[in-house]
Write a protein that binds this DNA or RNA. Structure first.
Length: 430
RNA sequence: UCCCUGGUAGCUCAAUGGCAGAGCAACCGGCUGUUAACCGGUGGGUUGUAGGUUCGAAUCCUACCCAGGGAGCCA
């Protein structure tokens, strides 16, 4: 008798099979037990009838508790009364371990409790569905780049100093000096792009900011492509293709999981290029027209981003921000040096910035001036400025926040559910 | 760091100055098609912590701790 996964039971109707899993729920009715069994791929109702199994097996069912592990044998049958449409008529049942009283019940729980039980919370249908969608998003992104000739380059996680010199970094002891956990692989990707043309990194990112909002984690994952010979327009084109490809892939491959989490997929279906593009100037005008007091030169807050995104059905690019609210390496606009060739992509439905990127400064004099203006330690950036000494070319790139993308595509109201074990300002357990 | 809200049984909540309560979970019993099954029964409490006001505090006051939401900062 061979083991089948619950997701494949439809192909085994009438056969006697083995299922290895856990008890999700149990109901009994005198001489019948209804066990809802899960195996990580799905859920199936198992019927244990007194007349169909040994007395020992039947009595054993009485002691089964929520999340007990077991191996059951039985015949797959289609039945309208069963949740999912199929059920298992049990012939043999072997408990492996009887679970202790399980903390996470099928009833309602509060966030604090669930976060403390995150290792067990992952077993619930909703959390498992989100993690499968996260996997699909990640694999969709990797396939997108791999199929377009990008080379995966792993950026270092331990770094000697800040990449951008602004945000708060986590520090750690590094022999007799201090190292910092990476907040971006971008500068290293610029070096790699000059070696290999089109590259990307995909790794964790760390920010020690004391942010307590539904959009922030202290540890999150980011994909950062970087391309030689590509300008701002080419950069935005790649972004809209990447985002559309990823959304369509999830719609095709994870329909069932989207149903499980009750995501309204109406607006996701239309996510296809081209995305609207507005300049920072136009965005400021748009905010003022919508009753938001906003002054040219400031950066957008969460609320401002939502107002802007609400004007469009699709994700929207906001490009050409003032240079002094962006990172030091953003290339100034040749006709208006006070603004730069940067672009952020704002997701619809209030999910905010999911991509930040732009064209980089490729001129040695300009990059040296910007490093001085930002009071960055010049020696630490020698390798970076070397890229402008030895065959500099126009180049662009961006960073896509995986968790924010997952939150948007899944329609979640908090980023903490998008990652298996979230790290927040005041939470590092489990 | 600042602002707002909250903390009562394992979990989710009620009790607003006067006997500490319910549903679920656990345990015992019943039921041959249940759908977060249902029905009957049992056990379960330092009301976040420390002070204070009061004849009397879960309830009012002060400080602290913890959590949630937001601001700033950011993807």
């Amino acid at each position: 008798m061979h083991t089948v996964s619950i997701s494949h039971v439809a192909q085994h109707v009438g056969e006697e099979v083995k299922i290895k899993g856990w008890v999700y729920n149990k109901r009994s009715s005198g001489s019948l037990f209804f066990l809802i069994i899960r195996d990580g791929t799905g859920f199936i109702q198992a019927i244990v009838a007194k007349d169909e199994v040994s007395d020992k097996d039947f009595q054993g069912c009485d002691g089964l508790t929520q999340e007990s592990s077991l191996v059951v044998c039985g015949v797959i049958k289609a039945d309208k009364r069963a949740p999912g449409g199929y059920e298992l008529l049990v012939t043999r049942i072997r408990p492996l371990q009887i679970a202790e009283e399980y903390p996470v019940s099928l009833k309602k729980h509060g966030v604090d409790f669930l976060m403390d039980q995150r290792h067990l919370w992952l077993r619930t249908p909703r959390q498992a569905a989100i993690l499968r969608i996260r996997h699909e998003i990640i694999s969709g992104i990797r396939d997108f780049f791999d199929n377009r000739g990008f080379i995966l380059i792993d950026a270092p996680i331990l770094t000697p100093s800040s990449c951008e010199g602004t945000t708060t970094l986590f520090s750690t002891d590094y022999f007799d000096s201090t190292a910092y956990l990476s907040q971006s692989g971008q500068l290293y990707m610029e070096a790699a792009a000059m070696a290999l043309g089109k590259v990307y990194c995909f790794g964790p990112t760390f920010r020690a900011e004391k942010s307590k909002t539904r959009r922030h984690l202290t540890e999150f994952w980011m994909v950062e492509p970087e391309m030689a010979w590509v300008d701002l327009d080419g950069n935005m084109e790649l972004q809209e293709e990447l985002v559309s490809h990823t959304v369509q892939r999830v719609l095709e491959e994870r329909k069932k999981d989207l149903e499980t989490i009750q995501r309204d997929i109406g607006r996701l279906k239309d996510i296809k290029p081209p995305f609207p593009r507005i300049s920072y100037d136009e965005a400021v005008e748009c905010l003022n027209k919508n009753g938001v007091q906003f002054e040219w030169g400031n950066d957008f807050g969460g609320g401002d981003e939502t107002v802007l995104a609400e004007q469009f059905e699709l994700p929207v690019f906001v490009h050409r921000y003032p240079s002094n609210i962006k990172a030091f390496y953003m290339k100034p606009d040749p006709v208006r040096p006070e603004i730069c060739l940067s672009a952020d992509l704002l997701a619809p439905e209030g999910y905010g910035e999911i991509i930040g990127g732009g064209q980089r400064i490729d001129d040695l004099e300009t990059i040296m001036r910007r490093i001085k203006e930002h009071s960055l330690p010049e020696e630490a950036y020698t390798w970076y400025t070397d890229l402008r000494r030895y065959g500099s070319v126009p180049h662009s790139g961006f960073g896509l926040g995986i968790e924010r993308a997952v939150a948007w595509i899944c329609g979640l109201d908090h980023i903490r559910e998008t990652i298996p074990f979230p790290r927040l300002m005041n939470r590092i357990y489990p």
